[in-house]
Amino acid sequence: MKDISYHKPITLEEALTLKRELGPGAHYISGGTDVMVLRRQRKLDPTALISLLHVGGLAGLRWEGEVLRLGAATTLCDILADRGLHERLPALTDAVRVMGSTQMRNVATMGGNVMSAAPSGDTLCPLLCLGASCRLVGEEGERLVPLDEFFVGPRQNAARPEEILTELVVPLPGPRSSGAFIKLTRRAALDLALLNMAVQLWLSPDGARLEKARVAAGVVAPTPLRLCGAEEALTGQPATTATLERAAQAIGGECSPRDSHRCSAWYREEMLRVLLVRAASTALARLGLDFALSGPEI
């Protein structure tokens, strides 16, 4: 059997040096819940694994004024343990709560989910709606890339091979905003989304209109996708069911759901509209408006 060397750097510099020295066969690994599965499926054939879990400063949440800085090595269970997070960014915690299983959430990281860039990655739509960016550190220094520009194909992102994701920078949406996330699956746990959707809505100061709206969906295109037609149909409109339904009808050409053995395209297409209305209703209900929640609250 081929041996894989395993490395545990404790600084970013050390990690980057290792990556350079070990060459293209070396892969970063955080929780390993993606890496190890891909390896077993022979879609990844690493000669070396560089763990990022021991690099200082990569884990944990930091609230800094108007932004939340979410360390790449923050585990999914850390996300759920933070009650403040659910109050302020419910779309994100909605997503994390239905990911994998308890065992998987104990080890899987936020950074790993983002870097995997799977079309079904559950945290990606909420992060897109929140306008998050990722901070990457590489040979040529550090840069901040908006997530809107980050996902370039199925399991492909805009990072260079040696770049390390250190944190996600999430602007806080403020008190007049709320969000929601819904994942369509065949069972309650250990399932990947047939479709997932996040919505973030901002109310006008008088609470009558939607000042701003962000909508994103996964598994409808090679990458998670902002649904601009729906966003436009929501923006500036009164917060009514009729508005939500119009927005659902405005979901359009950007989506190209596919037939697969998991689900057929027509079903995904129909569900997009259903999920939009439900996710938006939940977001509005969370803002205290008279709308139905689509799932149980924690």
């Binding site: 299983s101 065949r186 069972r187 309650a188 746990a189 250990l190 399932d191 053995h261 998991r262």
Partner: peptide
């Protein structure tokens, strides 16, 4: 084409 426990939908304890 679904010969694994991700795609073969054996129900879990969470399906309650």
């Amino acid at each position: 084409v679904n010969g694994n426990f991700l795609d073969y939908k054996l129900l879990t304890a969470k399906d309650r």
